[in-house]
Amino acid sequence: MKDDSDSTYEVVLAGSGGQGLVSSGIMLGEAAILEGKNVTQTTSYGIFQRGGLSIAEVIISDEEILYQRVQDPDIVLALNDDGMNLYASLGEKGIPIFYDTTLVQKQEGENLYGYPFTEMANKLGHSGMANVIALGAVVAKNRMIRVESLEAILGRRFTGKMLEMTIKALYKGVALVTE
């Protein structure tokens, strides 16, 4: 577990290509930049544009980030079974693992937080909102950045009805953790 003096957060978003994980990682990174933090975002993916296991990583820190890749995740979001299988065991070490119960087999274990992100997104009217809901939960859980910073980034990316929906989605995610 991290001590309070460590300002560095390492985030893993694992799922399939095409699920929007890289976009989520970028939004998280951009939100951290609004708070004056250093950010490194990397992606590892297969050779195809779609499918397979794709992992987006984000490191957020007040310090200079020397090594680009996540070594010890502080929080994980899994959006497919492959991603879950890879990271679920970290829950026992105190790392919160969020996962989408609409897409991933439900698992029992310490620090495993399953929520039906995709189902919730569909209810909001757009399956693409699943990432935003999940991001809201992740950020509310580990407080690496303020939710308002993420909201500000959504404001830059979306307009009109779509923006309304994404902000609603963000706070739905936050509520999962805070309520």
Partner: peptide, 9 residues
């Protein structure tokens, strides 16, 4: 590939 694809502030 590492440096090419990483994003930083």
């Amino acid at each position: 590939e590492v440096v090419a694809h990483e994003r930083q502030n």
